[in-house]
């Protein structure tokens, strides 16, 4: 290991890590919103939409992110919609993540007994009030473990962004190896930077999970 090499590469890696983080968190934020909406559509079987969402979920859960990105990045311009690489990364991650988040959140919704809904309705609450005040809070907290797993998974998936020439961590590492062949240093830094990004998520995730379990409320 050559520390000088590592030091000289550091700024490039930092820049790449920021890009990875930016796209990663934006994509994840949108994936959570998309996942919520899709899960509710699926769970409450909203006509027509519920079939469309079903197809979307199966499609995105069963194809690799790389291929999804290729379609967005190289395919869309062919039909006249050009998007830049960063936007494409966020969109790709949001669509992939949305499908996973939807399934996690739906199983959270399904874990709540229908009689909870009836109990809220019997108090005169409307459907919307029931969903908002009674069902969602319980469903969200029971989906937290799955959410955390999804977030870690999605952050890892960002490593394929280099394929659409986003200068993320993976791209930077490959590029530097190609140029100067300091393979060991480059790979070590790649691993360490990913760990720096992912470990806090896992740790915070497991703390939140424990908190929910203790402060929590399950019968």
């Amino acid at each position: 290991m050559n520390w000088e090499v590592i030091q000289s590469y550091l700024p490039l890696y930092e820049k790449a890590a920021l890009l990875t983080l930016k796209i990663g968190w934006l994509g994840i934020a949108f994936s959570i919103i998309l996942g919520f909406v899709c899960a509710i559509i699926r769970h409450y079987k909203i006509p027509v939409l519920h079939r469309i969402v079903g197809i979307y979920i199966e499609l995105f859960r069963n194809t690799p992110l790389l291929i999804q990105l290729f379609f967005l990045y190289f395919g869309l311009p062919k039909i006249g919609i050009a998007i830049d690489a960063e936007f494409c990364g966020v969109l790709g991650l949001a669509l992939l993540g949305g499908a996973y988040m939807a399934e996690s959140f739906r199983s959270g919704l399904e874990s709540i007994e229908p009689i909870q809904t009836e109990s809220a309705l019997s108090l005169g609450m409307s459907r919307t009030q029931t969903i908002w005040h009674v069902i969602l809070p319980q469903a969200i907290s029971s989906s937290v473990p799955a959410f955390v797993a999804n977030i870690v998974f999605l952050l890892k998936e960002t490593s394929v962004f280099s394929a659409i020439s986003l200068m993320d961590l993976m791209f930077t590492a490959k590029d530097l190896i190609g140029l100067y062949s300091k393979t060991i240093e480059c790979l070590a830094m790649l691993v360490i930077f990913y760990l720096i990004i992912l470990l806090p998520v896992s740790i915070v995730g497991s703390i939140v999970e424990k908190k929910l379990r203790f402060a929590g409320f399950g019968e």
């Binding site: 009689i115 909870q116 009836e118 109990s119 108090l123 005169g124 609450m125 009030q129 409320f217």
Partner: peptide, 27 residues
């Protein structure tokens, strides 16, 4: 028309007080 169920069906994520005042406040 109030209803009480065999399995209580309190809202597990709310305190006892919040369980009771949720509907009076929202509805």
């Amino acid at each position: 028309i109030g209803m009480v169920f065999q399995s209580y069906e309190l809202f597990p994520h709310k305190t006892i007080l919040d369980n009771i005042i949720l509907a009076p406040m929202k509805v």
